[in-house]
Write a protein that binds this DNA or RNA. Structure first.
Length: 398
RNA sequence: GGCCACGUAGCCAAGUGGCAAGGCAGAGGUCUGCAAAACCUCCAUCGCGGGUUCGAUUCCCGCCGUGGCCUCCA
């Protein structure tokens, strides 16, 4: 299997650390609101990757975090007069319902930051001990001068990172940092429900350290796959790399970094700040189906940016009907064309960095062949159903 | 400033080391009292310049242009 590694910027042959086992960590959501299609894209893409691994006989250990300790979580829980845990439970339940509807297999674990505090404190402590982090007035910062490779995912290292533009700066006390690129791993806090006792006083973790600690706790010091939207590449994932490697002393932290493209609307990336969101539950209410939505999401390569349109979605709904119909078609007699060449084509497409657009094309060819009686029905139908399942499409009749 | 994509007919878009899918729009035609619909036909030196090759739209290098991302985000 060959996958594109965002770190090396090349398609590489996938080789897990342990034979036959894939340790996969995917960045999850901050559940202060319901999800949108951009989120669905991430989780459908990595669900498809997982299914492809499993189809090829790998045992996948799949972990996806929940960022429940966060400024927005505090703000929204106050607005709604509920606890952070209640807000998390509510939105996570909605998230699960939507992902179930999209036939996304559930990860083995959904760790929450609030449940990983001891591990985070231990991680921060060890970073300080080893001289990779320093404490000032209750804040703990990671010292990026200790790790010159910081910025590898961004494609820029050293002082050049300072030239990055930003519309919004995080609320970090720059004056306390030794170097402007140093980032927070712990900060003082007194918000109810988001504050924890620590050697540096009451506070809460920085954003990046959470993932390092949760991945470490559930999957160990080294991962095979680390995934997320490409907007997390820098600084989030770059920070994670230097933290985790400084903590464990083991490299590489992640064998293959994978980032999916962004979902847009009318040419602008969907984001909560712009408010240009299309929600999964809304589309389901409008009558769009699981198969149609998954096809539409997978009809473009996972690394491509794309724009949502209802017209496009309607087209893929029609293709979904075609596949569903073909799965019930008698197909041709056994002496007709065998389906093996199509299996090979599907395999080659998926093997080439998960080329789902091409794989879908193969499924449509099989469907067309079955309906026209050109492809033998005995093996053709079962192959169609089996390969569609790799893409998370449900064709088998209930 | 950097990173990553992309640049195929008026528009959208697939694709390939060897005569360039498809859709929409447009032109002509069949049919029709006129029109619509349907059907038929027509419509591309694949951004520019080099290189590799018997041959490049396809591979490599450079340039130009467009877009996305870049210490909020998935």
């Amino acid at each position: 299997m060959h996958l594109y590694n965002s770190l090396t910027r090349e398609v590489e042959r996938f080789q897990p650390l342990a034979d036959g086992v894939v340790r996969m960590y995917v960045c999850g959501i901050t559940p202060y609101d319901v999800g949108h299609l951009g989120h669905a894209l991430v989780y459908v893409a990595f669900d498809t990757l997982r299914r492809w691994f499993e189809f090829n006989g790998y045992e996948v250990h799949h972990v996806q975090n929940i960022t429940d300790v966060d400024d927005d979580m505090v703000r929204v829980s106050r607005e709604r007069a509920c606890s952070i845990a209640e807000l998390t439970d509510l939105n996570h339940a909605i998230y699960l319902r939507e992902m179930d509807a999209l036939n996304v297999l559930r990860p083995d674990a959904f760790p929450r930051v609030s449940e990983t505090i001891p591990g985070i404190i231990e991680t921060v402590s060890r970073l300080i001990e080893r001289g990779f982090a320093y404490e000032v007035d209750g804040y703990v910062f990671f010292d990026v001068t200790r790790t010159p490779e910081f910025g590898a995912l961004a494609g820029v290292t050293g002082e050049a990172l300072l030239s990055f533009k930003s519309d919004s700066m995080p609320a970090e006390p720059v004056e306390l940092k030794r170097h402007p690129l140093d980032f927070l791993v712990w900060q003082p806090c007194d918000w109810e429900g988001a504050t924890f006792e620590s050697p540096w006083g009451p506070g809460r973790p920085g954003w990046h350290i959470e993932c390092s600690a949760m991945a470490q706790k559930h999957l160990g010091p080294q991962l095979d796959i680390h995934g997320g939207g490409k907007d997390l590449r820098y600084p989030h994932h770059d920070s994670e790399i230097v933290q985790s490697e400084a903590y464990s002393g083991q490299r590489p932290y992640t064998g293959t970094w994978m980032h999916n493209g962004t979902m847009g609307l009318d040419g602008h990336k969907m984001s909560k700040s712009l408010g240009n969101l299309v929600k999964v539950s809304q589309l389901l209410e409008e009558g769009f189906t699981s198969n149609g939505l998954r096809l539409a999401l997978l009809a473009r390569h996972y690394r491509d940016d794309r724009d949502f349109s209802r017209d496009d979605l309607r087209t893929w709904e029609e293709h979904a009907r075609t596949l569903e119909r073909a799965a019930r078609a008698p197909g041709g007699p056994p002496d007709r064309l065998r389906v093996q060449p199509y299996r090979n084509a599907f395999h080659d497409a998926m093997d080439a960095d998960l080329d789902t657009p091409k794989a879908i094309g193969v499924l449509l060819q099989i469907a067309e062949g079955l309906e026209a009686g050109r492809i033998a029905g005995d093996t053709g139908v079962s192959t169609l159903v089996e390969l569609a399942d790799v893409l998370g499409l449900r064709l088998r009749l209930e």
